[in-house]
Amino acid sequence: MSEMTKVDTKEHVTDLPAGLGRLGRAIDRFAALTAVIILFVFFSFAANNFFTVRSVLSLALQTSTVTIMGIGVTFTILTGGIDLSIGSIVALSGTIAVNAALFGVPIWLSWIVGVIVGVVCGLANGLMITRMRLPPFVATLGTQFVARGVALTITNAYAQPAPEAFGSLGNENLLAMGPQFPGISWAVLIMIAVALFCHFFLNETLMGRYTYAVGSNEEAARLAGIRVNQVKLVSYVISGMLSGIVGVILASRMVTSQPNSAIGYEMNAIASAVIGGASLMGGVGTVGGTVIGSFVIGILTVGMTMAGANYFMQTVVIGLVVIGAVYVDRLRYRKSLA
């Protein structure tokens, strides 16, 4: 056996030894988490009041929407695809939910209607990709325009005020205990629930494993008897559904329909996944990584704002972080590109 191993190593001189590869991945993983901690410590000194319960809760609230979208887009990235339509789906589902409430539908039902709009958009994306064989980039880019256009058309580009009760989901806090602890918002709880469920889904269920398999080697997955189209469809439906949830949360927080909300959020979501170690080539990425990536962006944004940095510089810094993260991604997958 040792002879075989020796000869085989010669065939693959360019490969990293297995141990080093695993160590490298472990370092990557720690690097992301370490980055969050370093950023946190840094801004605790650089900005007054950064390290307070209040601001941490505020950070969690602000980051929750992009985190949920990032988890959704992670599913599509894992299959080797992408979802550019999620920002527009957020606007459309929020808009339709508000209109449903204005139409007289019970508030709880109008929220569900918003989520269903997200599911339908995700289903449309999935069908275009699996049945019409459109590249995911093109299909979801189209949906980005269509969903935004429909939201603008429905509202005539105006923000419509929603019934007051519609705002309870986005504005009520749980466990509020005076000014020191304003409570945890529903959005943060939903984010935690979504993250836990999706982590479980990807790691413990057959469909989760197939999501990785399809992105890792679509042909192998097909030959193994996996229904590749079904797996892709599910990933786009999940992405759309989570965007629908975010749409309802945002509309509820504003207590209005905002046809112009969430413009460009898909890029923050994709950036979160990429910073968290997802490979745009598919097959690699985790819910935990995406959550960390999203919080890296969130901490940078909130921290720089509180430290008094120029607002426009924040965008520059986030861009550089994304480039740096993708560069690390490239280094890791250099051998599979070669």
Partner: peptide
């Protein structure tokens, strides 16, 4: 026809 990002056990059992 193996999925390189999955481990050995996952590949042996892929699809079943």
């Amino acid at each position: 026809a193996l999925a390189k990002d999955l481990d050995v056990a996952a590949n042996v059992f892929l699809g079943r």
